[in-house]
Protein backbone atom coordinates (compact mmCIF):
# COMPACT_ATOMS: atom_id res chain seq x y z
CA UNK A 1 0.00 0.00 0.00
CA UNK A 2 1.21 3.51 -0.72
CA UNK A 3 1.24 6.19 1.93
CA UNK A 4 -1.91 8.26 1.47
CA UNK A 5 -2.12 12.06 1.26
CA UNK A 6 1.40 12.66 0.05
CA UNK A 7 -0.10 14.87 -2.66
CA UNK A 8 -3.85 15.14 -2.30
CA UNK A 9 -5.24 16.72 0.84
CA UNK A 10 -6.97 14.59 3.43
CA UNK A 11 -10.64 15.55 3.39
CA UNK A 12 -11.16 16.08 7.12
CA UNK A 13 -8.01 18.10 7.74
CA UNK A 14 -7.78 19.73 4.31
CA UNK A 15 -4.01 19.30 4.33
CA UNK A 16 -1.40 17.11 2.67
CA UNK A 17 1.18 15.37 4.84
CA UNK A 18 4.16 17.59 4.19
CA UNK A 19 2.21 20.68 5.10
CA UNK A 20 1.32 19.24 8.48
CA UNK A 21 4.94 18.23 8.84
CA UNK A 22 6.40 21.64 8.09
CA UNK A 23 4.03 23.45 10.43
CA UNK A 24 4.92 21.06 13.21
CA UNK A 25 8.56 21.68 12.52
CA UNK A 26 8.00 25.43 12.52
CA UNK A 27 6.19 25.14 15.83
CA UNK A 28 9.31 23.58 17.31
CA UNK A 29 11.38 26.33 15.72
CA UNK A 30 9.21 28.91 17.43
CA UNK A 31 10.13 27.29 20.73
CA UNK A 32 13.82 27.21 19.80
CA UNK A 33 14.06 30.88 18.91
CA UNK A 34 11.56 31.67 21.65
CA UNK A 35 13.89 30.19 24.23
CA UNK A 36 16.76 32.24 22.87
CA UNK A 37 14.67 35.40 22.93
CA UNK A 38 13.73 34.65 26.53
CA UNK A 39 17.42 34.22 27.30
CA UNK A 40 18.09 37.56 25.65
CA UNK A 41 15.58 39.27 27.89
CA UNK A 42 16.92 37.63 31.02
CA UNK A 43 20.53 38.43 30.19
CA UNK A 44 19.61 41.96 29.36
CA UNK A 45 17.66 42.74 32.52
CA UNK A 46 20.42 41.10 34.53
CA UNK A 47 23.24 42.99 32.83
CA UNK A 48 25.04 45.81 34.53
CA UNK A 49 25.25 47.67 31.27
CA UNK A 50 23.88 46.76 27.89
CA UNK A 51 25.93 48.02 24.96
CA UNK A 52 24.28 50.05 22.23
CA UNK A 53 25.38 50.91 18.75
CA UNK A 54 27.94 48.15 18.33
CA UNK A 55 26.47 47.13 15.00
CA UNK A 56 26.11 49.10 11.81
CA UNK A 57 22.47 50.04 11.30
CA UNK A 58 22.79 50.72 7.53
CA UNK A 59 24.24 47.25 7.00
CA UNK A 60 21.52 45.68 9.14
CA UNK A 61 18.83 47.60 7.27
CA UNK A 62 20.30 46.50 3.96
CA UNK A 63 20.20 42.86 5.03
CA UNK A 64 16.63 43.26 6.26
CA UNK A 65 15.61 44.51 2.84
CA UNK A 66 17.50 41.63 1.22
CA UNK A 67 15.59 39.06 3.25
CA UNK A 68 12.21 40.71 2.72
CA UNK A 69 12.89 40.76 -1.00
CA UNK A 70 13.82 37.11 -0.97
CA UNK A 71 10.51 36.37 0.71
CA UNK A 72 8.55 38.02 -2.08
CA UNK A 73 10.54 36.19 -4.76
CA UNK A 74 9.79 32.89 -3.02
CA UNK A 75 6.10 33.54 -2.94
CA UNK A 76 6.09 34.77 -6.56
CA UNK A 77 7.99 31.65 -7.61
CA UNK A 78 5.30 29.52 -6.05
CA UNK A 79 2.54 31.56 -7.70
CA UNK A 80 4.28 31.07 -11.06
CA UNK A 81 4.16 27.34 -10.59
CA UNK A 82 0.48 27.58 -9.77
CA UNK A 83 0.10 29.29 -13.14
CA UNK A 84 2.08 26.51 -14.78
CA UNK A 85 5.08 28.66 -15.64
CA UNK A 86 8.29 26.81 -14.79
CA UNK A 87 10.65 29.34 -16.35
CA UNK A 88 9.22 32.22 -14.31
CA UNK A 89 9.58 30.00 -11.26
CA UNK A 90 13.23 29.45 -12.07
CA UNK A 91 13.80 33.15 -12.53
CA UNK A 92 12.28 34.08 -9.18
CA UNK A 93 13.81 31.22 -7.29
CA UNK A 94 17.20 32.00 -8.81
CA UNK A 95 16.84 35.49 -7.38
CA UNK A 96 16.03 33.99 -3.99
CA UNK A 97 19.21 31.98 -3.95
CA UNK A 98 21.27 35.02 -4.97
CA UNK A 99 19.62 37.12 -2.27
CA UNK A 100 20.32 34.43 0.29
CA UNK A 101 23.97 34.41 -0.74
CA UNK A 102 24.07 38.19 -0.47
CA UNK A 103 22.66 38.00 3.03
CA UNK A 104 25.21 35.45 4.15
CA UNK A 105 28.06 37.37 2.54
CA UNK A 106 27.08 40.59 4.27
CA UNK A 107 26.66 38.75 7.55
CA UNK A 108 30.10 37.20 7.38
CA UNK A 109 31.52 40.64 6.60
CA UNK A 110 29.89 41.90 9.80
CA UNK A 111 31.29 38.95 11.73
CA UNK A 112 34.75 39.63 10.39
CA UNK A 113 34.45 43.18 11.58
CA UNK A 114 33.88 41.94 15.13
CA UNK A 115 36.76 39.48 15.05
CA UNK A 116 39.18 42.21 13.95
CA UNK A 117 38.08 44.65 16.64
CA UNK A 118 40.05 44.25 19.85
CA UNK A 119 39.91 44.79 23.54
CA UNK A 120 43.25 45.07 25.27
CA UNK A 121 44.23 45.39 28.90
CA UNK A 122 47.78 46.50 29.48
CA UNK A 123 49.95 45.39 32.35
CA UNK A 124 49.52 48.83 33.90
CA UNK A 125 45.77 48.31 34.00
CA UNK A 126 44.80 50.56 31.07
CA UNK A 127 41.88 49.19 29.08
CA UNK A 128 41.50 50.04 25.41
CA UNK A 129 39.47 49.07 22.39
CA UNK A 130 40.71 49.37 18.85
CA UNK A 131 42.30 47.71 15.87
CA UNK A 132 45.59 45.94 15.25
CA UNK A 133 47.81 46.87 12.36
CA UNK A 134 46.98 44.71 9.35
CA UNK A 135 43.65 43.69 10.88
CA UNK A 136 44.55 40.12 11.89
CA UNK A 137 41.65 37.83 12.74
CA UNK A 138 40.86 36.83 16.31
CA UNK A 139 44.20 37.29 18.05
CA UNK A 140 44.91 36.70 21.69
CA UNK A 141 47.86 37.49 23.88
CA UNK A 142 49.27 34.12 22.84
CA UNK A 143 49.77 35.41 19.29
CA UNK A 144 51.97 38.22 20.61
CA UNK A 145 54.27 35.73 22.27
CA UNK A 146 54.51 33.80 19.02
CA UNK A 147 57.47 35.72 17.64
CA UNK A 148 57.89 33.61 14.51
CA UNK A 149 54.77 35.15 13.13
CA UNK A 150 55.15 38.91 13.45
CA UNK A 151 58.19 39.81 15.30
CA UNK A 152 58.05 41.11 18.77
CA UNK A 153 55.36 43.77 18.57
CA UNK A 154 52.27 44.96 16.76
CA UNK A 155 50.77 48.42 16.45
CA UNK A 156 47.43 49.01 18.12
CA UNK A 157 45.14 51.87 17.02
CA UNK A 158 42.74 52.73 19.82
CA UNK A 159 39.20 53.81 18.98
CA UNK A 160 38.21 57.38 19.52
CA UNK A 161 37.24 58.25 23.05
CA UNK A 162 33.56 57.83 23.78
CA UNK A 163 33.74 54.17 24.56
CA UNK A 164 32.33 51.01 23.17
CA UNK A 165 31.67 51.70 19.54
CA UNK A 166 29.39 54.69 20.03
CA UNK A 167 30.54 57.35 17.59
CA UNK A 168 33.74 55.69 16.55
CA UNK A 169 34.82 58.75 14.59
CA UNK A 170 36.77 61.82 15.53
CA UNK A 171 40.26 62.17 16.82
CA UNK A 172 42.00 58.85 17.34
CA UNK A 173 44.23 58.40 20.31
CA UNK A 174 47.90 57.76 19.77
CA UNK A 175 48.79 54.27 18.45
CA UNK A 176 50.55 51.97 20.89
CA UNK A 177 53.02 49.16 20.38
CA UNK A 178 51.77 45.93 21.94
CA UNK A 179 54.25 43.32 23.05
CA UNK A 180 53.94 40.10 24.96
CA UNK A 181 55.46 41.96 27.89
CA UNK A 182 53.08 44.91 28.20
CA UNK A 183 49.79 43.13 27.44
CA UNK A 184 47.78 41.42 30.17
CA UNK A 185 44.82 40.48 28.04
CA UNK A 186 43.99 40.75 24.37
CA UNK A 187 40.80 39.51 22.83
CA UNK A 188 38.64 40.25 19.83
CA UNK A 189 35.01 41.23 20.10
CA UNK A 190 33.84 37.68 19.70
CA UNK A 191 31.02 36.11 21.70
CA UNK A 192 33.29 35.89 24.76
CA UNK A 193 33.49 39.67 25.08
CA UNK A 194 30.08 40.19 26.71
CA UNK A 195 26.71 38.52 27.09
CA UNK A 196 25.38 40.93 24.48
CA UNK A 197 27.88 39.69 21.92
CA UNK A 198 27.33 36.12 23.03
CA UNK A 199 23.60 36.26 22.38
CA UNK A 200 24.17 38.30 19.22
CA UNK A 201 26.45 35.65 17.74
CA UNK A 202 24.20 32.81 18.86
CA UNK A 203 21.00 34.27 17.49
CA UNK A 204 22.44 35.49 14.21
CA UNK A 205 24.63 32.42 13.79
CA UNK A 206 21.71 30.07 14.24
CA UNK A 207 19.63 32.24 11.95
CA UNK A 208 22.38 32.23 9.34
CA UNK A 209 22.48 28.44 9.50
CA UNK A 210 18.77 28.45 8.75
CA UNK A 211 19.35 30.77 5.81
CA UNK A 212 22.06 28.51 4.45
CA UNK A 213 19.97 25.37 4.95
CA UNK A 214 16.93 26.94 3.31
CA UNK A 215 19.01 28.24 0.42
CA UNK A 216 20.44 24.77 -0.19
CA UNK A 217 16.96 23.27 -0.42
CA UNK A 218 15.74 26.07 -2.66
CA UNK A 219 18.78 25.64 -4.88
CA UNK A 220 18.06 21.93 -5.09
CA UNK A 221 14.45 22.53 -6.09
CA UNK A 222 15.66 25.10 -8.59
CA UNK A 223 18.18 22.69 -10.10
CA UNK A 224 17.98 18.89 -10.12
CA UNK A 225 14.82 18.80 -8.00
CA UNK A 226 12.81 20.60 -10.65
CA UNK A 227 12.76 17.49 -12.80
CA UNK A 228 9.80 16.43 -10.70
CA UNK A 229 7.79 19.19 -12.37
CA UNK A 230 7.43 16.95 -15.42
CA UNK A 231 6.58 13.72 -13.61
CA UNK A 232 4.47 15.05 -10.74
CA UNK A 233 3.78 18.79 -11.00
CA UNK A 234 1.38 18.92 -8.09
CA UNK A 235 3.80 17.30 -5.71
CA UNK A 236 6.57 19.58 -6.91
CA UNK A 237 4.42 22.64 -6.29
CA UNK A 238 3.72 21.34 -2.81
CA UNK A 239 7.41 20.97 -2.15
CA UNK A 240 8.01 24.52 -3.24
CA UNK A 241 5.21 25.71 -1.00
CA UNK A 242 6.53 23.84 2.01
CA UNK A 243 10.05 25.10 1.59
CA UNK A 244 8.62 28.58 1.04
CA UNK A 245 6.90 28.37 4.41
CA UNK A 246 10.25 27.62 6.00
CA UNK A 247 11.84 30.53 4.19
CA UNK A 248 9.20 33.00 5.33
CA UNK A 249 9.69 31.82 8.87
CA UNK A 250 13.40 32.55 8.62
CA UNK A 251 12.52 36.00 7.32
CA UNK A 252 10.09 36.45 10.18
CA UNK A 253 12.74 35.64 12.76
CA UNK A 254 15.01 38.25 11.25
CA UNK A 255 12.26 40.85 11.44
CA UNK A 256 12.56 40.52 15.21
CA UNK A 257 16.32 40.06 15.35
CA UNK A 258 17.01 43.28 13.50
CA UNK A 259 15.48 45.77 15.95
CA UNK A 260 16.37 43.70 18.99
CA UNK A 261 20.07 43.40 18.19
CA UNK A 262 20.81 46.45 16.03
CA UNK A 263 18.52 49.17 17.23
CA UNK A 264 17.50 48.78 20.85
Amino acid sequence: MDIPHTVEARPDTGLYNAKVGIWLFLASEVMLFGALFSSYILLRVGAEAWPHGLLSVPIGTFNTVVLITSSITVVLAWASLKLGDLSRFKLYQGCTVLLALTFVAVKSFEYRDKFTHYYVRLQDGTELNGHLAGNPLNWTAANLADTNRVGASITFHPDAAGGEGEGAHGGHAEPIELTAANVAKLESWGPWRSTYLAIYFTLTGLHALHVIGGALVIAYLWGPGSRMWRSDPERFTNRVEVCGLFWHFVDLVWIFLFPVLYLL
Binding site: S71, I72, G244, L245, H248, F249, D251, L252, I255, F256
Partner: peptide
Protein backbone atom coordinates in the same frame (compact mmCIF):
# COMPACT_ATOMS: atom_id res chain seq x y z
CA UNK B 1 3.00 44.13 12.60
CA UNK B 2 5.58 43.11 10.01
CA UNK B 3 5.57 39.56 11.31
CA UNK B 4 1.80 39.54 11.01
CA UNK B 5 2.07 40.56 7.36
CA UNK B 6 4.63 37.86 6.56
CA UNK B 7 2.78 35.14 8.43
CA UNK B 8 -0.66 36.26 7.32
CA UNK B 9 -0.07 36.73 3.62
CA UNK B 10 3.17 35.08 2.54
CA UNK B 11 2.50 32.07 4.74
Amino acid sequence: AKAFLVAGFFM
